[in-house]
Amino acid sequence: MNKRILAVDDDESIRRILQVNLERGGYTVETAESGASALPLLLQNHYDLLISDVMMPELRKLPVILLTAQSSEGDITRAYVKGTDLYLTKPFDPNELRTWVGRMLAETQED
C-alpha cells in the first residue's frame, strides 16, 4: 500500500525538495503552502503522515488531550511519545478535566 504524506511549508523550494525526495522513496506526496491551504486537504483526504514547518504564521502548537479507555502503560507511553500533552483515562473526573483544560488554554495564550 502506497503511504500518503502531506508536506506543509511556506517555502516553495522546501516543498519541492520534500516532494521529490519522498516520491523517490515510493511515497505519494501532496504539498500545501500554509496551514489554511492544508486544512481542506486534511479534511478531504486520508494522510499517513503530516510534515509541517512550525515557523508558519498560521500554525501554532495545539495542545492535545487524549481521553480514552485504554489504560495500559504501553498505550500511555506511546501516546506521550507521539506528542500527546495529557492522557486521561475513562471514566474521568470532570473537575480534573476542567482544571487541565483551563491550564492548557492559559498556557497557549502566553505563547
Rank of each mutant, 00 (worst) to 15 (best):
T31E: 01
S37Y: 03
R78G: 03
A32V: 03
G102W: 03
Q19C: 09
P40N: 12
Y47F: 15
E107G: 08
T77F: 12
V54I: 07
T89Q: 15
P91R: 14
I76K: 15
E96C: 09
V20G: 05
L66W: 00
W100A: 02
E73W: 08
H46C: 04
L59S: 03
L6W: 07
R24G: 00
D75Y: 13
D93S: 15
P94Q: 02
Y87E: 13
K90F: 12
D75H: 11
N95G: 02
A79I: 07
L97Q: 02
E96F: 10
Q19K: 14
G74C: 03
E110Q: 10
W100C: 04
A79K: 04
D85P: 09
E23Y: 02
R98Y: 00
Y47I: 04
S37T: 14
L62C: 10
L41Y: 03
K3S: 08
K82Q: 09
Q70M: 10
Q19S: 14
P63Q: 06
G26Q: 08
T68F: 11
S72Q: 07
A106C: 01
P57S: 03
T28Q: 05
K90Y: 13
H46K: 13
I51Q: 01
A32C: 05
L66H: 07
D53Y: 09
V29M: 06
I76T: 14
T77M: 15
G74N: 06
V101C: 02
E107Q: 07
D75G: 07
L86E: 15
G102R: 05
R60M: 08
L105A: 03
A69N: 10
L97G: 02
A38G: 10
E30S: 04
T28D: 03
A36P: 01
T68N: 13
Y87Q: 14
P63S: 08
D53Q: 07
F92T: 12
I5Q: 13
M1G: 06
